[in-house]
Amino acid sequence: MTAPTPSRTYDLSFARYVYDHIDGGQRLKLCMQCGACSGSCPIGTQMDHGPRKLFMMIRAGMKEAVLTSNTIWNCVSCYNCVVRCPRQVPITYILHDLSALAIEEGYAEAKKADNARFAKAFWWSATVFGRTDERLVTARYYFSSGLGEGIKKGMANQAIALAMVKTKRMHLGMPHKVKGVGELKAIVAKAAEIQARHGKEG
């Protein structure tokens, strides 16, 4: 299922889609715009809108502005906002599900969202090995913006990489894997199948 693209700048169809299909969307209706979330955010100053304003934009139907916002990508999942929200809106869940929607509908690609590419590299490692391999996740993320860019970023961060190897925070051998990677892959495949079958409700 695709989120409806509003015919005008302000259109309620996107808000209704978010209420019904985004994880925690129903509680978003209860938001009273107090600002406790954006004020609690440790990196609130790094967000273009912050959760409170983003939620108002959702209500106003500003689909494109919401899905190209950096707010959905800059959330660090500290849950400070969720703990303090006087209406118990699961803000973190909503931001994460909105970022999934942004990838699904190509907004992340179009905006060349850095965090989206990092998230993809992370997901790749998590599903292939069942673990995050610092070296491969980083390499995959660096090269996702092109060969030249990848080499440039790699060279720029060489000192950090060597320091991490030295302190055993990164290793250079074969990537570590969980036991039974096959079973993990089966679980992920099943989850993808369920999601495809039920759409967002799944």
Partner: peptide, 11 residues
């Protein structure tokens, strides 16, 4: 006192 001014978006 820390927070977000919801009219100006200032933190």
């Amino acid at each position: 006192v820390c927070g977000e001014n919801t009219l100006t978006r200032e933190v």
